[in-house]
Design a protein around this nucleic acid. Structure first.
Lengths: 132, 132
DNA sequence: CTGTATCCGTTAGGATACTG
DNA sequence: CAGTATCCTAACGGATACAG
């Protein structure tokens, strides 16, 4: 705190921080293990707690619950409680969440192109571009 | 394993899994704390270990090192070693990595629109859409 | 200068049990 | 059915020390 660096790197840092700040928040939200999956499921109209649990096979109630809460808190999904017996709750995606899944889909798309083959291949990697 | 669910959820599950698989890999890579930031920095031609360290202020050598390794392993950045004294190493972004930052930027963009105000606001949130 | 190895504290993921 | 509370463990981020 007492020795902040004001070198030339600082300029870059500033520019980079602006991007970092928000990006970090986003990644903090959807970087968690089950979050993106739950979001996608809800987008696909899997709106009940138990349905989600089935789809996610072995997820604990605990974890699913906290993930859902996080998503609700972040306004990516909405929660609708039907106060009846048996208790019924439905989750639905928000426009905000829908927009996110859209970007996520691009991310997925990128992954399919760039890391699909990366599982076991260790080719002789030599630089091909003419840097310097 | 012995009691796979073949209910209606299974259909959704199948579709969702295809997306999950790759998306998870991607998020696994860039969801780590410093990864996205390092990637952005390198995109901005901060190519030396020490420069990166300065930009990231308090990051440990250890962490930076492992992050760089991950990025190299994932082919998001390339590593060029100049075997001289003092030892010099340069990192540069790959086309693959560049494409990723592009998507990341959209993610950031999304964040700016949707979670900028979310820090402290707790408005009375009631459903507006006419979902039954 | 550019890293790796080791150790350690924190945190997130998860199992189980219990409540509305 | 839908969740919360508690506890446990594994994984991750990070500091320090050391090596090429």
């Amino acid at each position: 705190m007492s020795e902040r660096k004001f070198n030339s790197t600082n300029t870059l840092n500033e520019f980079f921080l602006e991007e970092r700040c928000t990006l970090n928040k986003v990644l903090k939200i959807i970087g968690k293990r089950w979050v993106s999956e739950v979001l996608v499921l809800i987008k696909q109209d899997v709106s009940r707690f138990s349905n989600l649990k089935e789809c996610l096979d072995g997820i604990s109630d605990n974890v699913l619950s906290s993930v859902l809460n996080e998503l609700v808190k972040s306004k990516l999904i909405g929660k609708e409680i039907f106060n009846q017996v048996p208790l019924k709750v439905e989750y639905h995606i928000t426009p905000s969440g829908l927009a996110l899944t859209n970007v996520l889909h691009q991310l997925c798309d990128w992954g399919k192109e760039h890391i699909a083959y990366e599982t076991r291949m260790k080719p002789t990697f030599a630089r091909k571009d003419g840097k310097d």
